[in-house]
Write a protein that binds this DNA or RNA. Structure first.
Length: 347
DNA sequence: AACTCGGGGAC
DNA sequence: GTCCCAGAGTT
């Protein structure tokens, strides 16, 4: 049998997924390389996000902003609006920061080494290695959730995450080939996404089944072990959806850091575990809405009460700004805010 | 090392 | 409902 890396690359050439940010086998054979801008953009979008969710966003971003310079020149609110719904909004803020550093300090070209890439906003150990390997053919080792799972099973490593991370990284590095490191990185991740899945792995189809110690020991489906996570508390809040008589909606740009940072939203109370303190953003006759918005964030469940009001033209809000119907795009809202709008719009 | 930070699909 | 996902930044 061939080296494991060669075995996996052969599997990848036959079974690798076709994705918009990838260069296919035929083009690669002609010497084509992926655009580093596309690699970077896709890798940031793919952080903790499935390929299926990224597809449409990747297409819209590359259409609106074909180069990193074009993205660097975009307005913040426009980029945040296009990112709306994809989640983890710090990624979008750092995406813009990074684009502007690349445009202004690097002449519009991405650095080619993982070490240099790592210093840029929003590029951590994984993304730096991924860009260096995929875009610049550097023999870097990428370690994402897929690689951790594959390595834990292949080597039957039963230490729970995150403590097992250094060992998993070391194992992954040992196996990384000098040839085609970008393809190899994507191959391991494809293996994790399609064969070595979290539940019910398809070991019978796996190119590494012969040497897999986890499969032989019967531990594979349970690996990697993880330290138990805390239960999510329930927080409560009130959102105020004010409509002016001309149809404008009262919206607020959220602070540039923290939850939903930099995104557009409805003014409201703090979100707390007890009873929320009312905080109407404008003097008006508020009407409660029967239904509430339920939404789950990374570390808490939210139940959001909604109130609405119709306000006259001459009244000034204490918080937020009125946005005319012509310039209001519900798709600019993060999901929890869009849910609130959808509930109120129907009434 | 532990938290914070979204959203959707699979189960 | 829980778990997972091509993780990074902060404390």
């Amino acid at each position: 049998m061939r080296e494991p890396a060669a075995e996996l690359l052969a599997w990848y050439d036959r079974h690798g997924r076709e994705l918009p940010w990838r260069v296919g086998p035929a083009a690669r054979a002609r010497g084509a390389r992926p655009d580093p801008y596309h690699v970077w953009l896709s890798e940031v979008m793919l952080q903790q996000t499935t390929a299926a969710a990224v597809r449409g966003y990747f297409h819209r971003f590359t259409t609106l902003w074909p180069t990193v310079e074009a993205l660097a020149a975009a307005e913040d609110g426009r980029v945040m609006g296009e990112w709306a719904g994809l989640g983890y909004y710090a990624r979008a803020r750092n995406l813009l920061k990074c684009a502007r550093v690349i445009a202004e300090e690097h002449g519009g070209r991405f650095p080619e080494t993982a070490e240099e890439l790592r210093r840029l906003p929003g590029i951590g150990p994984y993304t730096a290695a991924a860009i260096a390997a995929i875009a610049f053919d550097r023999p870097e080792t990428v370690v994402d959730g897929n690689v951790e799972r594959v390595m834990a099973r292949l080597h039957d490593i039963r230490t729970p995450l995150p403590a097992a991370k250094p060992e998993l990284t070391a194992r992954a590095a040992e196996m990384t080939p000098r040839a085609r490191p970008g393809c190899y990185a994507q191959a391991v991740m494809d293996l994790g996404a399609t064969i070595c899945t979290p539940k019910r792995p398809a070991c019978g189809l796996c190119p590494w089944r012969e040497g897999c110690r986890g499969r032989l020991a019967g531990t594979a489906p349970e690996l990697p072990a993880k330290t138990p996570k805390k239960p999510k508390p329930v927080r409560h809040g009130i959102a105020y959806l004010a409509r002016r008589v001309d149809g404008a909606w009262l919206l607020e740009r959220r602070p540039g850091s923290g939850l939903l940072g930099g995104m557009l939203g409805w003014p409201g109370s703090d979100w707390v575990e007890g009873a929320p303190e009312p905080a109407p953003p404008i003097r008006a006759e508020w009407h409660p809405v029967e239904a509430e918005v339920r939404h789950t964030f990374t570390h808490f469940h939210l139940r959001l009460a909604l109130v609405t009001a119709l306000v006259p033209m001459d009244r000034t809000p204490a918080r937020g700004v009125f946005v005319e119907p012509a310039e209001f795009r519900p798709s600019d809202l993060p999901t929890v805010m869009r849910k609130a709008f959808d509930l109120v719009r129907e009434r």
